[in-house]
């Protein structure tokens, strides 16, 4: 008899899972989504820079405009971040979109992101910033469509942590091994 409550909770879990599954499989009920993979905290020495890569995924069956769509009327995918004071975010780099045609515009390719795409940026704490952890917040604005319809623009929250380290020059480092040495 002690199994019963456990069985009920398992049963409820199964029911919830299948309810979610049934909703997700219905095209009419499935809303377009872009998700962001978890971001590891970024450790960076003050005065130096570190690259942060944000990995996004567009749900199957949908596409979103690239950062540089072909028409002025289309809404570009854009990342907007608010950096803490003295921690600069620079060089936001968007991937090139793919030129794709869709049933609603067979002669007019659109420049879009589908599936996985990555946006990167440089985090550069100033020399004067106090070592410690800093939260960076922002959002990704995107506007999705499928093969026959479009959905209003959405904002996906983006958040990661920057750990600012004190030491500017780690002891014993060979400058020849620097990734910048050959640039």
């Amino acid at each position: 008899m002690q199994l019963m409550p456990r069985s009920k909770s398992q049963l409820a879990g199964v029911l919830l899972l299948f309810a979610a599954s049934a909703l997700a499989q219905s095209p009419g009920k499935k809303s377009p989504s872009v998700t962001l993979a978890p971001i590891d905290p970024v450790s960076v020495t003050r005065g130096k820079g570190a690259e942060v890569s944000l990995h996004f995924r567009v749900a199957a069956g949908f596409h979103i405009n690239s950062n540089t769509p072909k028409s002025e009327f289309l809404i570009p995918t854009a990342l907007k971040m608010d950096a803490p004071t003295d921690v600069a975010l620079t060089k936001t780099s968007y991937p090139a979109g793919k030129d794709m045609t869709f049933p609603f515009a067979p002669d007019e390719p659109l420049n879009v992101y589908t599936g996985d795409f990555t946006i990167s940026m440089m985090v550069r704490p100033l020399h004067t910033v106090q070592p410690g952890k800093y939260a960076v917040h922002g959002d990704l604005k995107y506007q999705a469509c499928d093969n026959a319809a479009c959905y209003p623009p959405k904002h996906l929250p983006v958040e990661f942590e920057v750990k600012v380290l004190k030491n500017a020059t780690p002891a014993g480092r060979n400058p020849a091994q620097s990734p910048h040495a050959h640039r």
Binding site: F18, S21, A22, Q25, S26, P27, G28, K29, D146, A149
Partner: peptide
């Protein structure tokens, strides 16, 4: 599960393209 699959299948058919909730 069978009921949910039935409902999901029929709502998907009814949905057609680009349906809304």
């Amino acid at each position: 599960v069978a009921a949910m699959l039935f409902v999901g299948f029929h709502s998907a058919r009814r949905a057609g393209s680009g349906n809304s909730d």
